[in-house]
Design a protein around this nucleic acid. Structure first.
Lengths: 163, 163
DNA sequence: CCTAGTTATATAACATGTTATGATTTAACG
DNA sequence: CGTTAAATCATAACATGTTATATAACTAGG
């Protein structure tokens, strides 16, 4: 069965990037399921942003993640319900709501940074190893690579390779 | 403001691909708004698949697009409401529902193939021209390129370059 | 100081992907 | 042949992005 998105090349590049991204996130999710925290893989960038940049108001958080403000507002509500972030009023400007990691959230990030993120990064790096040439060729190689060995198999492989 | 997804590199590659894909689709949507048909840019791959491969049952359509069957079912309902595709019972197997382009749908595809898709492809090709090197570098170049000149500006540029 | 505009956030409505599951049809096998 | 398994599609529930708009707080100009 012909892969139409691949055949159409540049014409459907947007759809294709989204499709690959979704598959990567789904694969990553399976890796994260070893953690006991009910956080989707797509929420980690927000936690990582707070870890890297410290407490931020909603708007700047959106800017640093490259998504729109309503998306951040919803994710923040979700993560606040889980007790991973908290929202406080800004000192000066009553409109701004500062988002920061809670102790629990910082703990999750610390564990992830130590135990989980390096493995994910290693697995994706393994997937992208030896990629070169035009973008469409590299994308095809990623799709083929994921079909051959999903990320969770590459974690072990890259661990083995690192030993 | 630091772009966290970019800083995190391979770790958030999935989120980043999705983000770039969404931006490309949004840019493409603006290009398509010149057409009078109320079809989102994300529906064109389905129409293109039917044009390339002919009538297909729902499941094979999903396979050829690399998305899941419920996604296809919904898009097909939507496009059928617009009169662009039609669903007929398969001859042999009563479970299969064949999806095909209507006259109106085929007409839209024909116009798009002649007048619109070449421009989109040209604009994206312009965006991706001169890309080389590691994947993450190419992605960064695409993001920078879109920020500098969105696709709708590249349509004119690539038309001009073609003259 | 009050009003008009701007800014920051929240909310609603929608788009479009997913997984899980149900219903119907087909196939297979004892 | 009848029961059970498999295949196909629809539907429900959810995830997470978007745009459009409402609300509240700040700022500036008369």
């Amino acid at each position: 069965m012909e892969d139409v998105l691949r055949s159409l090349g540049f014409l459907c590049l947007g759809s294709r990037l989204k499709r690959i991204g979704e598959q990567l996130q789904a694969d990553t999710q399976r890796l994260l399921d070893c953690l006991d925290v009910p956080v989707q893989s797509s929420q980690y960038p927000l936690l990582a942003a707070l870890d890297r940049l410290g407490p931020l108001p909603v708007g700047e958080l959106a800017q640093s993640l490259g998504i729109t403000q309503p998306g951040v507002t919803r994710s923040v509500s979700l993560l606040a319900d889980l007790g991973l972030v908290e929202v406080t009023q800004s000192d000066g400007d009553q409109r701004r709501r500062m988002v920061s990691l809670t102790k629990s959230g910082q703990g999750l990030v610390d564990v992830a940074k130590r135990d989980v993120w390096p493995r994910i990064e290693g697995a994706v790096a393994d997937l992208c190893r030896d990629l070169s040439g035009p973008l469409l060729d590299q994308l095809a190689a990623i799709e083929d690579g994921l079909a051959t060995a999903p990320l969770d198999r590459r974690v072990r492989m890259s661990k083995g390779a690192a030993q």
